Each structure stands twice: as C-alpha cells, then as structure tokens.
Simulated assay, not measured.
Amino acid sequence: MDLRIFTEPQQGASYDTLLAVAKATEDLGFDAFFRSDHYLRMGSGDGLPGPTDAWITLAGLARETKRIRLGTLMTAATFRLPGVLAIQVAQVDAMSGGRVELGLGAGWFEEEHTAYGIPFPKEKFARLEEQLAIVTGLWETKTGDTFDFHGTYYDLTDSPALPKPAQEKIPVLIGGHGATRTPRLAARYADEFNIPFASIEDSERQFARVRAAAEEAGRGADSLTYSNALVVCVGKDDQEVARRAAAIGREPDELRANGLAGTPAEVVDKIGRYAGIGSERLYLQILDLSDLDHLELISAQVQSQLS
C-alpha cells in the first residue's frame, strides 16, 4: 500500500508551509506530495495568506525535492485551456526530472469561479472529456508531427505538440463517485482511478464499475491503479487523537467513521480493510499543515507496518 500526502492549501497555506510539508514527505519516506487545485477556502477559517496556484507550487517543489512524486487531486478543467495545461504539466515534469502526475477533474466549486472571474460552464463533463483527449493527445504526438483536434468546445490546428514531458507517459488520474460517465472516462484515459472520501463499501462498488468499464473498453481492469483519498488523524493515544481532531474542527468519532483516525493500530487495521477491496494507494488528507509531528507518527507507526 503506497501512502501519499495530500494537502488542501486553499484553507490557508503559504508556499513556505507547503515546502516544509513536501520536504517532510520526502524525508519520512512517503511516496508523493499532492495538493488540491482550488482558489477559495471552504468552510471555516480565514484562508490566509490566500490561495496558491497548484502548478506554480509544484514547479517550485520540483526544484526543491529529489524523490517524491508530485501531482494534483484534482486540477480543475475549468481553470486552464487544455493546450496551456499540457505545456505547464510537461514543463513541471521536466523540472522535476520526470516525477509529475496529473489528476484532472471537471471542476465543481462555483463560488471560486465567481470570486476570481473564471467562467463556470454548464457542460463541464463534456469539456473535461475533450480536455483529456487534447492533453494526452499532445503528449503522445511524435516529435516532428503535428496535432489537430476539432471538438465542440476546443479547436487545435497544426499544433507542434511541444514540449514533451520528461517521462515517456505522465500518469493521468481520474476520480469521482459518478456511476456511469466517470468509469467510462477512467477506462479510456486514466492510469489511476481515485475515489475521494468514500466508505469501504462505496469504494468497492465504484472500483467494480471502473473495472467493468475497463474490460468493456478492451483493456485489462488491472491496468489501472485503484486508490482512495481520506482524511487522516492519528494519535499515539485517544487524547492525542482528540487534540488533533479539535485542531481541524472535527470530532474523533466522526473521523473514525469517515476517515483514517485513531491510534496507529486502528488506522493500520482500517487500511488493511481498504486493501482488501482492491485499494492500492492512499492519499492522506492532512488538514493541519503546521503539525509535522503528525507526519512523523504516521511514518514511524503506520507506514512502517505496511511494507
């Protein structure tokens, strides 16, 4: 089971804070540092010092880390034109020496679009499908050839399809709870399917849908990696769990029910149950980015039991 650190900087984090978490992620042996792609905080808190851009952040981290994978859960298709996104991600991949992964989603948070003057179209899923075709098509085009795409929402003619990523293939992540269109899209474009904040039972049902869609599309169901994103709150005892839960405005019992919370033994047991339904990778949502001791505890007493 791979463990990756997943952050939500729109809730309030500077680049320096994210750098500290990314360096701890690398030093403590976690597989990757991922971040959300949002421009407006959600729920309580002041969100200070303000939003950071996902791909600018990852470009900086690409130069300041050496081993960990870097990526987004999920870049919003509404934020960037697909040709521009392909260039940005390929450049960050080169800057990292080939360690980037792209999670791409339709976009859903209307308020952040309104706050920063970003169009919020009705046909988001259809646009996402065209974006996936364009981004992957640009990267797959042989050097010296050109790429054309004539869709409903985007039109590219004689694109040189440059630059190329450092990796032969940048892994593409698609995720969500949708029962029909999401599995179909994952089967066509994804290297990894991620379901966020879902129970073991719901995850098992969604993984089965994706596996069936992959088989129907003519690819092996095991050609995708299956993963979960879950909030994490680990403490050496109940008192420490309660303290960490309070720091993020949550209740321990609720976190135990809906995330990975409790003592290391409790969390290892629950991770085992996710592994039992086919989850191969967990994105641990860290909401208190100042608590690096939390990462040390997870590394020492959770991750160490999973190898």
Results as ranks from 00 to 15, higher is better:
Asp46Phe: 05
Gly45Ser: 13
Gly45Glu: 04
Leu58Trp: 00
Leu128Lys: 01
Glu111Leu: 15
Met74Asp: 01
Arg63Gly: 07
Leu73Ala: 14
Leu58His: 00
Gly98Pro: 15
Pro121Glu: 03
Ala59Cys: 02
Arg41Thr: 06
Arg69Trp: 08
Thr57Lys: 07
Leu132Glu: 10
Phe79Ala: 05
Ile134Trp: 01
Arg63Ala: 09
Val89Tyr: 01
Arg80His: 15
Ala94Leu: 15
Ala32Thr: 02
Pro119Ala: 01
Phe125Asn: 13
Met42Arg: 10
Gln91Ala: 15
Ala77Tyr: 03
Pro49Cys: 08
Ile134Val: 10
Trp108Cys: 15
Gly107Ile: 11
Ala32Lys: 08
Thr72His: 08
Tyr116Cys: 07
Met95Pro: 12
Leu58Met: 04
Asp27Glu: 15
Glu101Gln: 13
Arg41Leu: 11
Phe120Lys: 10
Leu73Ile: 15
Leu104Gln: 04
Phe79Val: 13
Trp55His: 04
Ser96Met: 01
Arg35Ile: 03
Pro51His: 04
Gly103Thr: 12
Ser36Tyr: 05
Ser36Glu: 05
Thr57Arg: 04
Gly45Phe: 10
Glu112Asp: 11
Ala86Pro: 11
Glu130Tyr: 03
Pro121Cys: 03
Val92Gly: 00
Lys124Thr: 14
Gln88Ile: 11
Leu48Cys: 06
Thr25Phe: 15
Thr136Cys: 13
Leu138Ala: 02
Ile87Asp: 03
Leu102Arg: 12
